[in-house]
Design a protein around this nucleic acid. Sequence first.
DNA 1: CATGAATGAGCGTTCATTCAT
DNA 2: TATGAATGAACGCTCATTCAT
Lengths: 175, 175, 175, 175
Amino acid sequence: MTSPKQRIIETALRLFSTQGYNTTGINQIISEANVAKASFYQYFKSKEDLCVEFLNARHTYWFNALNSFTASETRVNSKVIASFDFLIFMNKKEDFRGCSFLNTLSEIPMDNQKILAVIQNHKSDLRSYFLELLNNQELSDHVYLLFESSIIESQMFRSNELIEVSKRLITNLIQ
Amino acid sequence: MTSPKQRIIETALRLFSTQGYNTTGINQIISEANVAKASFYQYFKSKEDLCVEFLNARHTYWFNALNSFTASETRVNSKVIASFDFLIFMNKKEDFRGCSFLNTLSEIPMDNQKILAVIQNHKSDLRSYFLELLNNQELSDHVYLLFESSIIESQMFRSNELIEVSKRLITNLIQ
Amino acid sequence: MTSPKQRIIETALRLFSTQGYNTTGINQIISEANVAKASFYQYFKSKEDLCVEFLNARHTYWFNALNSFTASETRVNSKVIASFDFLIFMNKKEDFRGCSFLNTLSEIPMDNQKILAVIQNHKSDLRSYFLELLNNQELSDHVYLLFESSIIESQMFRSNELIEVSKRLITNLIQ
Amino acid sequence: MTSPKQRIIETALRLFSTQGYNTTGINQIISEANVAKASFYQYFKSKEDLCVEFLNARHTYWFNALNSFTASETRVNSKVIASFDFLIFMNKKEDFRGCSFLNTLSEIPMDNQKILAVIQNHKSDLRSYFLELLNNQELSDHVYLLFESSIIESQMFRSNELIEVSKRLITNLIQ
DNA sequence: CATGAATGAGCGTTCATTCAT
DNA sequence: TATGAATGAACGCTCATTCAT
């Protein structure tokens, strides 16, 4: 069996992703992770602390999933388009729950620097991901911005319509 | 003195915008609105009900502010760009709190149809706003998507940088 | 249209009978009686006051219904048995809700003399009802006691079984 | 000092018995039991849950008290009569508060199956108690029904009169 | 005679966290 | 290292009643 700490993080990963941060209570987490309450506070000094670890775990999971999904594409342009297809794939898999990082951003108080930093870090990496692919700051930012919209619009309308729109726009942009 | 209902809505407008929906309790609202708890529930059958009214009020306020801000621009292209400047203006005014509708979207359970409808309605109106300005579905959607990213990226990074990037991208798109 | 006071009493009759005293709020009563809140407190100085009037109205209604139901019986013994059939009739009509007076007795604080008096008065009348029929204190008390059990047992078990048992016992007692 | 759970049950036993279920709030219970509110909800997932435990505890307590009270009687007939004397004893001890089970029956919504089951179970055991004593279904039901009336009539009239009447009736029935 | 606005007190419940062992 | 007991504060909401008009 995995370690208590690992079980807590895995449970948080599942619950925070699907129910949101505020909606998910410590009690549910420790109960589903089969961990004593005091054990929880041994590994995480607060729920906020767990949130940071959750976002880090999500970061890793998400980029791994993205890279796996697009691995078979060799040409840059196809890889970019496949990244948007990845959103469609994830929307199906996670029922249009959107981006954990943006969702968390809306749930925490504005002055929570620690969590904010993790969120910003994730999105900076995403921005770099497109920059590394496209090697053109303006173009990659353009794609990044449409990618971000694609996430939230599809979450909001429970529909991939605007992802498809974005794909068409980008196809035009990158030939 | 204004009516209790009005004071409640104004207080909710202020508190939900700045602190978020879940973080703001009924107790704080009624206390700052100087209203008895039972009075609150005479006007709003639930907190969710108030949320709907809040979003409606915010919708009206936001579009009025947008129209005021861009009123002096006569040419379409300038009006579009001015809309992005409006985001910068609001970020300064509201300290990068982002979009109440997107923030609320992240705070409510996924199956809350009533609130979701209000959120979708607001964004549909925004999408139409750009369509009416530009009279070109693909182009206006493009602008709409960059507008949405601009909001969330500037909220997340507490910076207008990516709004400026979007402005440059759009300037190229619409000449 | 009937008078406001009348409408209130009729509504209370309906709601207190079916939902109980504590479960039924003033708001529901005035709303279903189409009466303003302040009007209510013009006619009844408190909810307790209404309870008294409700029990009085129920007293009249119940004895009228009992007398109607047993009117066709001419012989004493048949009238007594018919009284128990009346319980079965009422259980069907009111879905085993039991006796409003005994239910209210359990709902009010023990020291509420005003309401207690109305309850005692009702049951004294019932005891007298059987005494007048049977002209024999011991026998009529015997029947009265089985009648009371019949009400509460059928309410508790949502079944007329023990009413039928009582009927058989009484048939033996009075030949 | 006893455990919190024990203190809660004991307090509930005292307060529900004397004040009724709806009248007794969680706040009073935890305050008089010297227990934090959250501790209460660790042991009982709802007030209804506590009600079930209360009725179970009352069931045990009541039958124990009954058996103790009648233990010295060896002949069946004396044991039956002693059971009615037990009611007189309890009325003195508990100031004519009647039967917790019947009182609760009147306080809960009709569709509360969980509590209803506990109530029915208690009374079924009582019915069996007389059946085992008397070994005659019709006779024991007769006694059971007079026993039930005796409880509610003495509660309603704050008097043991009708218990004495019942005792006389039963003495005649069983010689 | 009639009203609807407004209230204080209390409801049952859940939260993230700490303590004693 | 690991635990379950215990907590204070706050949650959203409903109650019977009163007041100003």
